[in-house]
C-alpha cells in the first residue's frame, strides 16, 4: 500500500506540524516515508507545501509525480486547488473552507466554492471557526488532520492520535490533551 499526500497552506499555518505527526506515526509503525518540506523565503506569508510519501515498499523520489497524489490536505481552500494537477483521479481533497486573504486578487468566495464542489472527492470544513468556538485557535491544523484521518488508511486514526501524544509530550499534558481533543473534533466532524 502507498499514500502520496500533498500538504498545503500559507506560511505559518502549521502544515509542517501535520507532517510531523503523520511522519512520527509512520516511523513508529515501520512504514517507509519521505517528506519534502519548504523552508526559507516562501515561509513569509507565501504559499507552502509539503510532499509526504508513505509506503510499505521502498520510496525513491522525494517528490510526488503529477496525477499520483492520493490526497491533498490543505489549510486553505485556494491553496488546495493550486496542486490539482498532482491529484489522482480517485484522490481526495481535505481542506479548510476558511480563506486566508493576503493578496489583492484573491478569488471571489463563490468562485472558489463552485470550483471545489465541481470536484468528485472533497471534504471541507470551517476549521478556523471551529477552533475558535472550541477555544483552541492554535489547533486548526490538528482539527484538519482529524478530518483527514479516515482517508489516510495506511495509518489508523488511533495511531495518529497516539502520535499526537508523543509529538506534543514535551509541551506538557494540557497541550497534548487539547490537541487530541482537536483531532477528535475533526475526526467526528467527517461521517
Amino acid at each position: 500500500m502507498k499514500k502520496d499526500i500533498i500538504l498545503s497552506g500559507v506560511g505559518g499555518q502549521g502544515i509542517l506540524t501535520i507532517a510531523t505527526i503523520i511522519g512520527e506515526a509512520a516511523t513508529a509503525e515501520g512504514i517507509n516515508l519521505k517528506q519534502a518540506e519548504v523552508h526559507g523565503m516562501s515561509q513569509r506569508g507565501g504559499d507552502v507545501q509539503s510532499n509526504l510519501r508513505l509506503s510499505d515498499k521502498n520510496i525513491y523520489s522525494d517528490l510526488i509525480a503529477q496525477g499520483k497524489a492520493d490526497m491533498i490536505i490543505s489549510m486553505e481552500p485556494m491553496e488546495a486547488l493550486r496542486y490539482l494537477p498532482y491529484l489522482h483521479e480517485e484522490g481526495w481533497i481535505i481542506t479548510s473552507a476558511n480563506p486566508f486573504k493576503n493578496i489583492p486578487d484573491y478569488p471571489e468566495d463563490d468562485e472558489l466554492v463552485n470550483t471545489l464542489e465541481s470536484l468528485p472527492h472533497v471534504v471541507k470544513l470551517e476549521i478556523e471557526d471551529i477552533a475558535k468556538e472550541n477555544n483552541m485557535p492554535k489547533c486548526a491544523n490538528v482539527i484538519l488532520l482529524g478530518m483527514a484521518a479516515k482517508y489516510i488508511e495506511i495509518l489508523s486514526p488511533e495511531q495518529l492520535r497516539e502520535s499526537i501524544g508523543r509529538v506534543f509530550a514535551a509541551k506538557g499534558e494540557k497541550i497534548v490533551e487539547m490537541n487530541q481533543r482537536a483531532f477528535d473534533i475533526g475526526l467526528n466532524a467527517v461521517k
Partner: peptide, 15 residues
Amino acid sequence: CSFGKSQVVMPRPPA
C-alpha cells in the same frame, strides 16, 4: 493529469 490547473488559483508571493 486527471485535473488541469485551476483558473481561480492566484500567485501568493511571500511578503
